[in-house]
Design a protein around this nucleic acid. Sequence first.
DNA 1: AATTTTTATGGTAGCGCTACCATAATGCTT
DNA 2: AAGCATTATGGTAGCGCTACCATAAAAATT
Lengths: 347, 347
Amino acid sequence: MAKKSPPAAIEKRRRSTGRVTLADVALEAGVSPITASRSLRGDAPVSDDVRARVAAAADKLGYVPDPAARALASARGASIVVLVPMITNMVFVDLIESVHDVLFPAGYQALIGITHYDPEQEEKLIRSYLAHRPAGFLVTGFDRTEAARRLLADAGAPCIHLMEVTSASGIYSVGFSQTDASAAMTEHLLERGYKRIAFAAAQLDPRTLQRAEGYRRAMRAAKRYDPSLEILSAARSSIALGGELLAQALKRKPKPDAIFFCNDDLAQGGVLAARRRNIDVPNTLAIAGFNDLNGSDQMLPPLTTIRTPRAAIGRTAANMMLDLLRDVTVPTPSIDLGYELIVREST
Amino acid sequence: MAKKSPPAAIEKRRRSTGRVTLADVALEAGVSPITASRSLRGDAPVSDDVRARVAAAADKLGYVPDPAARALASARGASIVVLVPMITNMVFVDLIESVHDVLFPAGYQALIGITHYDPEQEEKLIRSYLAHRPAGFLVTGFDRTEAARRLLADAGAPCIHLMEVTSASGIYSVGFSQTDASAAMTEHLLERGYKRIAFAAAQLDPRTLQRAEGYRRAMRAAKRYDPSLEILSAARSSIALGGELLAQALKRKPKPDAIFFCNDDLAQGGVLAARRRNIDVPNTLAIAGFNDLNGSDQMLPPLTTIRTPRAAIGRTAANMMLDLLRDVTVPTPSIDLGYELIVREST
DNA sequence: AATTTTTATGGTAGCGCTACCATAATGCTT
DNA sequence: AAGCATTATGGTAGCGCTACCATAAAAATT
């Protein structure tokens, strides 16, 4: 009532922003600002009576804490940096969305950084985000510069690695074994009786290379490994590229009888291209993908793929982050969420 | 040299965070903190000599401004709120990415809020983001609550509307006419000689409804409008749903000879389903989409669609935002970036 | 009953930066 | 040469919040 809109003659030389501050809430509740602060954060002993009065006052005045002031005073903000390679890959969009869905209701803002698969770029991003005093970091994989590693270690904020897992102690990670998943798919193809199984991949980021490794492991174990069956392209993964890789694979002699694409967008492009060429999938040529992206079940034929738990990874990692920020002990620092082989008609 | 790691006996009672502050830079450059501040921001007359000295000092010390302190002191942060309905739709991912690519190098952080197509949710988001003192808002479309509109108007930060355009004065918008684009596609189908053109849509958000309106306009003008040819579903758009909508459309009597899907994911599902049912596209049934999403050119047959300039919208709007923040006058507050009819084999 | 511990509250002083006002040194007018 | 605008710099105070220390009251201990 009294405080609102001083039409003229501002008492001192206030820069007042018109914002409802903690001091207003404290005044309304009849306590000191620090007590109000503690009460609202619930981090210290406050009587039930005060807690109720402060909550009522905050509610009445429509108080919203100022994140900037909070970050400045506490040397730690309410934002969590999420570093992903790119967002045009739906895998990372699903990841970001699930992270966001957990963090946002908990009062944290996800700051999304895009590394474009470049460790140098990632290091720059970390450096610049550090200035924001983030409460934590969620980063993709383990492949980064030594400097970036040090920056993260010295940041004084927890860091969780996504998508891959490690057994190294003191490192938090949530993901699954890319290598095992890829080997499982290769074994599935071998079991189905395919002999010349090609591996087609683009982008060649660390996880792609791990998948290539899984493919090799399984092929070698079956004594069917042939380096000429690896079709690798550094180009950005896309549906159209899948068709091109298929064309390349079919030039190999003798022809492969199956192609394992390292990502579903490539695989989708592959089945569509096969269809265009009137190749019988899966009888003449089997096609398998990875990630179970939207639409893979609608392909002609529906695509055999590996369903990766990316939404679960995001959720789990975000919850782990919240635990770490609340000083709750995290029983398992590395969580392997596995993968699921989805067999459809393309193999 | 001197400042680093005070092993014991901290002079006063500093809470020192170890951060390189503006004061350090000022000391090094031999100027006052305010001069250093102004010099780095370049917002006031500073001699070339001082500018160079400050820049050198900042560089030498590795100074990075603290966004929280800046936001607190200037009552305006370096973040720009971007409100989109969802990020599982690639249209908005493209939008976000292009916005981010312009804003980030300019020193602004995009804060992404997801409204889930819910105005109430959007209002809540605006309320909560307001606490961050954002420098500006980029919002999707014009459909929002009255309260949200007021909040944005009173925020004292520029607001640009994305995806749609308006002629209303004093409102910034970058987009294209959803209605016109949709009418253009419908006219294309009519020109091709299709007579019973169905319109299949999901999600039913404002832009979808505008597209429905464009379809109606064109159909009525051709005296071919039949309400029973509108296949609308409130469900979330997906490739699988496209197949279902196609099935529904084919139940209409007499059967439609073309289906215009309001989004490419539906249309992709449509062509795949048609193929599964051995329907000859485009001879028995034409299929058209909207947005030209990734993969539409790879479909069987490749999809006729409307290419929407979403990346350009993001870029243009972000640059407009930068202009507004720099007090550069924006000549055209509403920019219509148009659309492009992409005719492929599906029609 | 005296002492220690715990619980609840408050005061003070910043976090790092910039808005606002003031001042000194120049340039430009008449 | 006097007067005024302009340019360059600095001082002070505060943005809104919380860390740190201190204190008073209540509970637990001896």
